[in-house]
Design a protein around this nucleic acid. Structure first.
Length: 543
RNA sequence: GUCUCCAUCGUCUAGUGGCCUAGGACACCGGGUUUUCAUCCCGGCAACAGGGGUUCGACUCCCCUUGGAGAUGCCA
C-alpha cells in the first residue's frame, strides 16, 4: 500500500528545488549551430519550468579561448535573445583550484590514484568504485563468461583487468576494463579449472598495489554489473561496468580534464538538469560516478540528438555554413533562426511551425525531443525567415533594412522617404536581408543590366519604337505617379497596336536592368522621371 | 574488435496496437489570381530500411540483419 506513496530522491528534488540548467560551451572562435541549439533547448526548458538558465564558459583551452571568441559567443547569444541568469557567467579557468581540490579529495578517499602511463609524469585517475553499489543506478545482472585468448596472460591490478579477447579470425584482440567491472572474478582455463580468484584479494590489490598475471587463461567468469540512469529524452540507459575503464581526471601536466572540471562546476553551480548533445551520452555513466563520489546528488540528464549536415554527417570544421554568425550575416532574422532551430529534434505535437517564443516556451517539454539526429534544411529556414520578414511591422522592416543597406556602397545618399517607399514596395518579396542586394537599381544612376533579359525584351523593333514613345509621354506627364504612368504606357500600347501589358517587361528591363521586381508602375514612379528617362535612353542605345 | 545509441516522404516532422487507403510543413511539379517576379489560393508527386516473431490486428511491442552516429584513460 506504500508503493503509491514512494517518491524517489529525484522526484523530491524536482518537487522542491527550482530548475537550474546551464549552457557550457568552449569558446573557440565561432558558435556552432548544434551548440546554440543546445543553448536554446536549455533556455526553453528553464523558462518553461520557471527556473534559471546559467552560462558557463569552458575556457580551459587557453590557445583557442581568446577574448574575441568569448565576445563572439556573448554577442551571438544576445542576438538570439538567449539571456542568461546570474551574471557574470562562470569562467571555468577561475575554478581550477576547486577542480584540483576535488581530485585530491578523491585521491584521499581512495577513489582515485596516480598513474604514469602515457608518460610525461603522473596523471590522476578516477577509479570506478569497486564497491559500485554506492553509486545510484548500479545493479548486478548475473554471472557471465567472457572468452579470452590463451596466448596473452590476464593481468589483474589496481588499474583494472587487461586481457585479450578473441577476434573473428581467432587472433588476440586486446581489451580490458576497470576492476569494478569484474566482481567475483574467476579466471579459468580451457578445462574450466580455476587459475585465479579475485575474492579476498581486493584489498591487497586496491590498497597495497598487488598485481597478478595469469597465463593460459581461456575464460573470465564474473558477476556483471551495469550502471543505469533515466534520460529525459532517450529513456532508460545502461552500460555494463566491464565495458568501462577508469577515467583520467587530471593530466600529467597538472591540468584538470573535462570530465572533472565539468562535474565539479555543475556541482558548484547547483545544476539540476543537464541538457546537452548526444555525444555526451557515454560520458554520463562516468559523470554519475564522479557526482556520487564527490558527495553530490546526481542531476537529471537529457541528451539531444545531433544536427547533421546536408550529407547526413556531423558538421565538421569544413562545413563553414554551420555558424550562427553566418546566418546573421546572410540576413536571417534571430527569431526565425530561433524558431527553426527549436523545431529541429523537437515538435509541439501538433501542426504548428511558426511559433513565438512564448508559444515555444509554453509548449516545450523534454519528453517530446526526438531521438534521431536531424538535418539542417536551409530552404525551410529561408521560407520561415520570409514569413517573419513579411510579418514585420513596416517601421521595423525599414529600420533593419536601413541598417543592412549600410554595407552596400551604392546607398550612400538615400533619403529616408525614398528608402521608406522602396521598403514598402519590396518587403513582401524579401526572404533574407541579403536579398536587399538586388535593390541597387533603386539607388544607382545606371543599373546593372542583365544582358540576357535586355536583349530578349528589347529586340522587337515595334517594342523599341513604343518605348521611345513612352519616353515622350513620360516627359509630358504633369504628375509623375503610378496611375499616370500606367495610362501613359497603355497609350503607347494603343498607338503601337500592342495589347496592354506587352510593354511592361521591356520597360522593366530598360529601367531596372532586371526581369523581376515589384509592380512596374510603382517602380517607375519611385525611380522618378529623370532616372527613368535616362535609363530608357541608355538601354535603347545599348541593346 | 567491443560497448552505447539511432532508423516514417528528398528534408523537418505527426503517429505511444485498431482513428493510417500514414497527416502537416519545406522543396519539387501542375493549375488559378497578378502587368513580370514574389505573395496568395487549388491540386499533384513522395515514406513506415529488410526479415522474422507476439497479437484477432503492428508504423507502433520483441528478436535478428543492414545502415548511421558516438565511445573505447590524459579532446571537449
Amino acid at each position: 500500500m506504500f508503493a503509491d506513496c514512494q517518491v524517489t530522491l529525484r522526484e523530491l528534488r524536482t518537487e522542491f528545488m527550482s530548475v537550474r540548467v546551464r549552457f557550457a560551451p568552449s569558446p573557440t572562435g565561432q558558435v556552432h549551430i548544434g551548440n546554440i541549439r543546445a543553448a536554446i533547448f536549455n533556455w526553453l526548458f528553464a523558462r518553461h519550468e520557471g527556473g534559471s538558465f546559467l552560462l558557463r564558459i569552458e575556457d580551459t583551452d587557453l590557445e583557442r579561448s581568446t577574448p574575441e571568441a568569448i565576445a563572439t559567443l556573448l554577442e551571438v547569444m544576445e542576438w538570439l535573445g538567449l539571456a542568461f541568469d546570474e551574471k557574470p557567467p562562470l569562467y571555468q579557468t577561475s575554478q581550477v583550484q576547486k577542480h584540483l581540490a576535488a581530485a585530491e579529495r578523491l585521491l584521499a578517499a581512495g577513489d582515485a590514484y596516480r598513474d604514469a602511463k602515457g608518460g610525461g609524469g603522473e596523471a590522476i585517475v578516477f577509479r570506478i568504485p569497486f564497491a559500485a553499489e554506492r553509486i545510484p543506478g548500479v545493479s548486478s545482472v548475473g554471472t557471465v563468461d567472457v572468452p579470452v585468448h590463451p596466448e596473452i596472460p590476464v593481468q589483474v591490478n589496481g588499474k583494472g583487468v587487461d586481457y585479450a579477447g578473441i577476434s573473428k579470425k581467432g587472433t588476440p584482440a586486446p581489451g580490458g576494463c576497470c576492476l569494478a567491472g569484474c566482481l567475483d572474478l574467476q579466471v579459468l582455463d580451457a578445462a574450466e579449472q580455476v587459475l585465479f580468484t579475485l575474492a579476498g584479494k581486493e584489498d591487497a590489490i586496491l590498497r597495497d598495489g598487488a598485481e597478478f598475471s595469469v597465463p593460459g587463461a581461456a575464460i573470465l567468469r564474473f558477476t556483471r554489473r551495469v550502471i543505469s540512469y533515466h534520460d529525459e529524452v532517450k529513456g532508460d540507459m545502461s552500460k555494463p561496468l566491464d565495458s568501462m575503464r577508469d577515467v583520467v581526471i587530471v593530466r600529467s601536466d597538472g591540468s584538470p580534464v573535462f570530465h572533472l572540471a565539468n562535474v565539479v562546476d555543475d556541482i558548484t553551480q547547483g545544476i539540476t538538469h543537464i541538457i546537452r548533445g548526444d555525444d555526451h551520452v557515454e560520458n554520463t555513466f562516468r559523470h554519475i560516478m564522479l557526482f556520487s563520489c564527490l558527495g553530490a546528488v546526481v542531476p537529471t540528464y537529457a541528451h539531444l540528438p545531433m544536427i547533421v549536415n546536408a550529407a547526413g554527417k556531423p558538421y565538421s570544421k569544413r562545413d563553414g555554413d554551420a555558424f550562427v554568425g553566418d546566418f546573421r550575416d546572410n540576413g536571417f532574422v534571430a527569431d526565425a533562426l530561433f524558431n527553426y532551430l527549436s523545431l529541429l529534434g523537437w515538435s509541439p505535437g501538433d501542426d504548428r511551425e511558426k511559433m513565438s517564443r512564448q508559444e515555444l516556451t509554453a509548449a516545450f517539454s523534454l519528453s517530446r525531443v526526438l531521438h534521431a539526429s536531424a538535418q539542417m534544411d536551409i530552404q525551410k529556414l529561408t521560407n520561415l525567415n520570409g514569413q517573419y520578414i513579411a510579418e514585420m511591422p513596416a517601421d521595423e522592416f525599414l529600420a533593419v533594412s536601413r541598417d543592412w543597406l549600410k554595407r552596400y556602397p551604392w546607398v550612400s545618399a538615400v533619403s529616408d522617404s525614398q528608402l521608406q517607399a522602396v521598403c514598402a514596395l519590396m518587403q513582401s518579396r524579401v526572404k533574407r536581408f541579403a536579398d536587399l542586394e538586388q535593390w541597387s537599381y533603386f539607388f544607382v544612376d545606371v543599373p546593372e543590366y542583365d544582358e540576357k533579359v535586355c536583349v530578349k525584351q528589347l529586340k522587337d523593333p515595334a517594342v523599341r519604337a513604343a518605348l521611345q514613345a513612352i519616353s515622350a509621354l513620360f516627359a509630358a506627364l504633369p504628375d509623375f505617379a503610378a496611375a499616370g504612368i500606367e495610362s501613359a504606357i497603355q497609350a503607347a500600347c494603343d498607338q503601337a497596336g500592342l495589347a496592354h501589358g506587352k510593354l511592361n517587361q521591356p520597360l522593366r528591363a530598360a529601367v531596372t536592368g532586371s526581369g523581376v521586381g515589384a509592380g512596374i508602375y510603382e517602380t517607375v514612379e519611385l525611380l522618378g522621371r529623370e532616372r527613368s528617362l535616362a535609363r530608357l535612353k541608355i538601354a535603347l542605345e545599348r541593346y
